[in-house]
Amino acid sequence: MGKVALDLIDGGVPAPALIELGAATRRGAVRGEVVATYRSPAHLVPATSLFSVLGDVPSTYGGARASWRAAPRLDVSGDAGVRVIDGDAAEHLVARTTLRLDDRGRGALIAELRRSGGDGWTGARAAARVPVAAAWTLSTELELVIPDDARGRGTIWPWAMTAMTWSRGVWDAAVALEASASSEERGRLDALCRLGRRWELP
């Protein structure tokens, strides 16, 4: 069993145009998909701007994705593709695994490797979401990115966040600490908080 889909989307101005072609099939615990995308940017610059004479460089992407439920609680997936822009080809690779810590997936661990080519970057990401009590969830996330061409922006960009969430009924709250070293700053520490209430129609 499989499916093939073709989407033609012309959003007019200011939305870009998009053509997507995909085919997917599932065989047991394995799902495969091939995707091709053509995106015309439709740049948002005034017609009288000098930047309007540069043309409209589209990007074309072709790739495949496979996902495998290796065990009832373990998913493994991978993406591989090539994006071509202005005659330059760049690879796009992702490998990802998710381990659910319970049948319903309230707790889970993620490990991900990502490669974005063409003067791009290579990154590794790990995340965990662990229920610590009925209403409390602890989550943490770590990412390391290595740019291909540092150009004085630092050779590695680490990023980490730890958050605690409380959720009860229509209310939820979260506090988090975010730490990073990036292309702009050698070090940065942010404290984040969020309080939410959900209103629902009867």
Binding site: P16, S40, A42, R83, I85, G118, D119
Partner: peptide
């Protein structure tokens, strides 16, 4: 942004 022109303006 450089890797995929037009994605941001979506």
């Amino acid at each position: 942004a450089r890797a995929e022109p037009g994605a941001c303006t979506t």
